[in-house]
Simulated scan of single mutants.
Amino acid sequence: MALRLVTRRMFCAVGEAAIAPPSKSRWEKLKYGKAATWIRSLASDYKEACLDMVVGIREHPVKASVYMSVLGGAFTCFLTKPDYSSFEVSLLERSNQLALLSSWIRNASSDCHVQNLLKLRNEGRLCHVNLGLLSLVYFNEHTPDSKLYEAQCSSLSVLWREFPRRVMDVGFAGHWWILDSKMTNYDVNEDEFAYLPVHMQRTSPPTAQGVETNERLHRESWLALKVEAEEKEMIEMDKGSTVEK
């Protein structure tokens, strides 16, 4: 009886071994695993999305061109967005430009704005924030390491609605726009013309006819003077009278 049971178990084990599938290799386990299945499904989804995008571009070329222009412009603005180091370089360059001018011909608005920025920078109150497509430079009421109660208490902090008042410059497309606008005509002191009549404080640009007239007069100023006949007679008479004497 015992021999029969042992024989039956041996035959069952051999049969199960013959029926069982062969063991998979490591590559097959990796190929048919959960991670591989998830990657294949993700690649299939991206493939279908790309095909739909190509079909949409063919069906609506104008709409697609507008979208691509907007995306390209946004990407360009993101790449050309200035940082705080470029702001410091621009500020020092503008300060050097103003320092080369006399105080009599220096624009008061430009000088006041630049000096205010330098004061805030030296005090450590200028801050920079990156907003993706543009950058902002603003000032704080206190320095970061200030231990005053007003600086540490969150209830006394500046409200967000007052943030536009503290913005000192906007960096966009590789330029600091407020600083550049303040430096327009930085070598023209407008206070010099404050006591002139109103019609003389502002000059209009010359017309094309006026420019031609000025150029003609300038060319004529280099020509030799022409003596008229009457002037020649007067000169001869003066010479005759001189000889008689």
Score class of each variant (00 low, 15 high):
Met1Asp: 04
Met1Gly: 10
Ala2Phe: 06
Ala2Asn: 12
Thr7Ala: 15
Arg9Leu: 15
Met10Lys: 14
Met10Gly: 13
Cys12Ala: 15
Glu16Val: 15
Ala18Gly: 12
Ala18Gln: 05
Pro22Glu: 14
Ser23Thr: 13
Ser23Val: 13
Glu28Met: 00
Leu30Val: 01
Gly33Thr: 06
Ala36Ser: 00
Ala36Tyr: 01
Trp38Arg: 14
Trp38Pro: 08
Ser41Phe: 03
Glu48His: 06
Leu51Asn: 08
Asp52Arg: 15
Val55Gly: 04
Gly56Glu: 14
His60Asn: 11
Lys63Pro: 07
Lys63Tyr: 03
Ala64Val: 09
Ala64Asp: 01
Ala64His: 09
Val66Trp: 02
Tyr67Pro: 05
Gly72Phe: 00
Cys77Arg: 13
Cys77Ser: 15
Cys77Met: 15
Cys77Val: 00
Leu79His: 12
Pro82Tyr: 11
Asp83Lys: 05
Val89Ser: 09
Val89Phe: 13
Val89His: 11
Leu91Ser: 00
Glu93Pro: 02
Arg94Ala: 15
Arg94Ser: 15
Gln97Leu: 04
Ser102Pro: 01
Ser103Thr: 15
Ser103Lys: 15
Ala108Asn: 13
Asp111Gln: 07
Leu117His: 07
Leu118Asp: 05
Leu120Val: 08
Arg121Ala: 08
Gly124Gln: 03
Leu126Met: 06
Leu131Lys: 15
Phe139Leu: 04
Asn140Phe: 02
Pro144Phe: 03
Leu156Tyr: 10
Phe163Ala: 00
Arg165Gly: 14
Arg166Gly: 10
Met168Asp: 04
Phe172Tyr: 00
Ala173Thr: 04
Trp177Arg: 09
Lys182His: 01
Asp187Val: 02
Asn189Ala: 09
Asp191Gln: 10
Tyr195Asp: 12
Met200Tyr: 09
Pro206Trp: 02
Ala208Met: 08
Gly210Tyr: 14
Glu212Pro: 06
Arg216Asp: 10
Arg216Gln: 11
Ser221Ile: 01
Ser221Val: 05
Ser221Gln: 00
Glu228Tyr: 13
Glu231His: 01
Lys232Pro: 03
Met237Asn: 11
Gly240Thr: 09
Ser241Gln: 07
Glu244Phe: 06
Lys245Tyr: 11
